[in-house]
Design a protein around this nucleic acid. Structure first.
Length: 697
DNA sequence: AATCCCTTTATTTTT
DNA sequence: TAAAGGGATT
């Protein structure tokens, strides 16, 4: 049986892929170039571990960076080892893994059960409040403070550590961090970085928890390893026991999130810290034509600091030449793109097969307009996320408060939404009392109401308590619902009993004057459907005393907070009907991991790609930012399967100012590289947009 | 509580 | 340019 399985699993894999999939149990680093079948290797490897190496699915952990990737992996593995097996396997993001560990060992980790998770918006709002409370007058914006705090946490520095070591001009930063840290603990909430840091500390300080994981997880697979930060790297080091092996899969050439803390040198660190490591290189590309790959290879070859220079080799023939289009302005460029889509669509290419990729979101505006005028259906990825909408956040805040009465942040958000005459003054009074007593806002409300029952209480307090009791009674009602209702009903109760739906219906009526699109109250309804679709099927065998199994609401909220991303965005709104074919618009960042038959790279020009900000970045003597822009361009190019159009404009209006631009230095480099060759031997053709018709023949 | 008007500011954003 | 946030006004 075993040999049959192994034949089956290795069938249709190339040598490198086979080597990775069937590698003996050990630490393995797979350097997988763009389009070389990375996911396929991961999925086959997991099946191999189960079917050939006879590991139990519960002994395997597969870590990805996005929920989408985790979901895709689960689905593909299910096809190989069956649905019931996949359920025992942990395949999820770093953050979800940490959340599950923390939920199971919340006490040991210094948290109370039911602790909440702050997403970036909530975190920023939190910090903003702290900054205004201490009358901060410095130059930092709340979001900047938030990212600095994240940076500290990534370096495993607590506020107390920073206080000693950190000597920046802004002495308030440490103070804000300190207050933030303490308030997070008293409100029983953690932010995204905290999920990681606390788990690392838990594993480090708690031998029995650590040993338990060491014995459990035999094989850990990590996707997109070039995107790990140092905290995630530490986490892996702690999670892996003496008997555990790690397979890290990544591509240093596609590292484009350095600015967010990702450190692709973790790939070489991995070789050192997890030695001995078997290294496998995948460079057979199954996605693009050779012309496209030649362009990509030429571009990336000039990058400095590559860990392992590699040349992608194609399997799809030479293909059409890459078209480089020189446009007079961004208007000409967008017309060119629209016209070309029209033309190719008329030749039978589905709208789905087109992608327009750009460096900045701003660039999508003009494209949107032109596509709309031409009646070409399109979808923009990465707009406002479903779960980030204000009305959704309001509904979620009610649920967060229900789960965690200590969450002052949630309470502040919704105590007067919809308006119930609890204005700023009342909240200030309330929070002053809460502060004196050192208790949470919600506790304080309860206390005040009880206290005000006494006849001899001053009038002022009585009226305060009366106002607050409206809110308190509401929460009590919701509490009762939580006990008697299932999840979707509860969510419905939350949006209806609180008056949120009616409130937003009114708003919609006012602002849209009867128009049907973008109705906020509909989004709230959507949240109810989301809750019913969320059928409590968590993948991966649960840990003992895992609350997530007992409390669907907690489960739902956690899940939602850790997946406030695009896939739910698109799925959430469309609903049932069959999906219309749409042209895809997105940033090059958002395109990583995707592929399209026809790709347009718009604005491949000076100041835009590489971004003007990266030009002067010489930190640590390296051109870090500049190199990353090069990799970003490489990611863009390698998205294309059959046809690639790279366009640039000679002038572009940015921030209301029309600037002369021109071809990107990356484009000049590539062209210079092929100068000596005959035009026919070059992988590209340079042309103007107006002679397009002849190009496409 | 909603509206208006002014100022500010402007890459990328997996969780 | 244009969008978003803050502050003052109704």
């Amino acid at each position: 049986m075993s040999s049959l399985d192994s034949d089956f699993l290795l069938k249709n894999l190339n040598e490198g892929q086979k080597e990775a999939v069937s590698a003996p149990l050990s630490n393995v680093l797979v350097i997988a170039g763009a389009g070389t079948g990375k996911t396929r290797v991961l999925v086959s490897r997991i099946s191999w571990l189960v079917q050939v190496e006879n590991l139990k699915p519960r002994e395997i952990m597969a870590v990805t960076f996005t929920n989408k990737a985790a979901k895709e992996m689960q689905e593909r593995i299910a096809m190989l080892i069956g649905e019931s097996n996949v359920r025992m396997l942990w395949a999820s993001t770093f953050h979800s893994v940490c959340l599950r560990l923390l939920r199971s060992y919340s006490r040991q980790a210094g948290l109370q059960p039911g602790f909440g998770v702050l997403d970036t918006d909530n975190q920023t709002a939190f910090i903003k409040r702290i900054m205004s409370e201490i009358d901060y007058i410095g130059e930092l914006k709340p979001s900047e403070v938030a990212s600095k705090i994240s940076k500290f946490k990534e370096r495993r520095q607590r506020a107390a550590d920073v206080a000693f070591s950190y000597k920046e001009e802004d002495p308030y930063l440490v103070k804000i961090y300190d207050i933030y840290e303490r308030e997070c603990i008293s409100q029983n909430v953690v932010d995204f970085s905290e999920l990681l840091l606390r788990t690392v500390e838990l594993l480090e300080n708690n031998e029995s928890v650590r040993d338990l994981q060491h014995r459990r997880f035999k094989e850990i697979l990590v996707d997109e390893f070039q995107d790990t930060n140092s905290l995630q790297f530490d986490f892996l080091k702690l999670l892996a026991g003496p008997q555990t092996h790690i397979m890290a899969v990544g591509d240093d050439d596609q590292s484009i999130y350095g600015w967010r803390g990702a450190d692709y040198t973790n790939m070489s660190n991995f070789k050192k810290d997890f030695a001995p490591v078997k290294t496998v290189l995948l460079k057979d590309n199954y996605r693009s034509t050779q012309n496209i790959l030649d362009m990509a290879n030429t571009l990336i070859a000039k990058g400095s600091e590559r860990l392992l220079p590699k040349v992608l080799e194609g399997n799809n023939g030479v293909g059409s030449k890459v078209n480089i289009i020189k446009c007079a302005s961004e208007y000409v460029e967008s017309d060119f793109i629209v016209n070309t889509i029209k033309l190719l669509h008329a030749k039978g290419i589905s709208y789905d097969d087109f992608a327009v990729l750009y460096r900045t979101n701003q660039q999508s505006l003009l494209l949107e307009q032109r596509l709309s005028i031409s009646g070409i259906p399109f979808v923009i990825y990465g707009g406002q996320k479903f779960f980030e909408r204000a009305e959704i956040q309001d509904a979620l805040a009610y649920m967060r408060l229900l789960l965690n009465p200590l969450d002052d942040q949630a309470l502040r958000r919704i105590i007067n939404v919809p308006p119930r005459r609890i204005g700023e003054k009342v909240v200030t009074q309330l929070s002053d009392i809460a502060y004196e007593r050192g208790s949470s806002l919600f506790e304080t409300i309860k206390m005040l109401i009880d206290y005000a029952k006494d006849e001899n209480v001053p009038k002022e307090l009585k009226s305060l308590a009366k106002k607050l009791s409206v809110f308190y009674d509401l929460m009590e009602k919701l509490k009762a619902c939580r006990e008697s209702q299932n999840l979707p009903d509860l969510v419905r109760s939350v949006i209806e009993i609180t008056g949120l739906v009616d409130y937003y219906k009114q708003k919609d009526l006012k602002s849209n004057k009867g128009a049907l699109d973008n109705q906020k109250h509909k989004n709230l309804e959507q949240l109810v459907s989301n809750a019913s679709v969320f059928n409590n099927e968590r993948f991966g065998e649960a840990l003992e005393n895992a609350e997530e199994n007992l409390d669907p609401l907690l489960n739902f909220i956690s899940n939602v907070t850790l997946s406030s991303s695009t896939e739910l965005n698109a799925e959430g709104i469309e609903g049932e009907g069959q999906r219309q074919a749409l042209v895809n618009l997105m940033t090059m960042h958002a395109s990583k991991g995707l592929e399209f038959k026809v790709v347009f790279l718009a604005g491949f020009e000076k100041n835009l790609l590489p971004s003007f900000r990266s030009e002067n970045d010489f930190r640590e003597g390296q051109r870090r930012a500049y190199d990353e822009e090069r990799r970003l361009a490489y990611v863009g190019i390698t998205r294309a399967q059959e046809r690639l159009f790279i366009s640039y404009a000679l002038s572009r209006t940015v921030y209301g100012r029309t600037e002369n631009t021109g071809a990107s230095s990356f484009l000049r480099e590539i062209v210079a590289q092929y100068k000596e060759q005959k035009p026919d031997d070059r992988p590209y053709k340079i042309s103007l947009p107006d002679i397009l018709g002849s190009l496409l023949k």
